Amino acid sequence: NITNLCPFDEVFNATRFASVYAWNRKRISNCVADYSVLYNLAPFFTFKCYGVSPTKLNDLCFTNVYADSFVIRGDEVRQIAPGQTGNIADYNYKLPDDFTGCVIAWNSNKLDSKVSGNYNYLYRLFRKSNLKPFERDISTEIYQAGNKPCNGVAGFNCYFPLRSYSFRPTYGVGHQPYRVVVLSFELLHAPATVCGPKKST
């Protein structure tokens, strides 16, 4: 009989979030998941669920729940959905087409922007091929755009693959930082360890 609440607040209220290319994953298990708490945590810009209804979450049980978190800019949030393409979905964080879970995003301009520009958040701009779903690539190998090998040196047709967002508070919403948490629900042929409040007794 599990009584402890799932530590969603640790994920959502973390002081620092990860850069999207090096997104963070927390496995959540053996706890009571009260998803209604999430609705009250922040004024969400996005709370979209796929393959599951957000209002039914509190009635369900899962084997595992994974919470992935990272920062992107406002106009990239739409890429965090099944079947999307674009720089983020292709080279940084890719959801599977049959994704079961929820994408939660909110504006973090007050936390993640600086007047002089916050350069701490990076994204991958160049990659030889698209990522597979939930693949994480943290390599910093020089990207070869031409025929000549780069031998690890940046220059003509040889690019450092990561680029930094420079978040400034005066930017338009599309270029402001957004914190994203992706909850993916895993149903294996194994005992369910993460249940809503109704199912945990």
Rank of each mutant, 00 (worst) to 15 (best):
N4Q: 14
L5P: 15
C6E: 05
F8P: 05
D9Q: 12
E10Y: 07
V11K: 05
F12V: 09
N13K: 10
R16A: 15
A18L: 05
A18K: 08
W23S: 03
W23H: 04
R25S: 05
I28K: 03
C31N: 06
C31E: 06
A33G: 10
D34M: 07
S36C: 06
L38M: 10
L41M: 14
A42G: 15
K48L: 08
Y50P: 00
G51Q: 10
V52S: 06
N58D: 14
F62K: 07
F62V: 12
F62R: 07
A67G: 03
D68F: 04
D68N: 03
I72S: 02
D75R: 07
E76N: 03
R78V: 10
I80P: 01
A81T: 05
Q84D: 03
T85D: 08
T85Q: 13
I88K: 03
Y93I: 02
D97N: 13
F99H: 03
G101I: 02
G101Y: 03
C102G: 03
I104H: 06
A105W: 15
A105Y: 13
A105C: 07
W106Q: 05
N109I: 04
L111G: 07
V115T: 12
Y123L: 15
Y123H: 11
L125Q: 11
L125K: 04
S129Y: 10
L131W: 02
K132C: 08
K132M: 12
E135Q: 13
P149G: 11
C150Q: 00
C150Y: 01
N151L: 12
G152E: 10
G152P: 05
V153N: 14
A154N: 10
A154S: 13
N157C: 01
C158Q: 02
P161Q: 04
Y165P: 01
S166Y: 05
Y171I: 01
V173E: 12
V173I: 15
G174C: 03
H175W: 15
P177A: 07
V180E: 00
V180I: 11
V181I: 09
S184T: 15
F185W: 10
F185N: 05
E186D: 14
L187W: 11
L188R: 14
A190T: 13
A192D: 13
G196I: 11
P197E: 13
P197C: 15
K198N: 15
K199F: 14
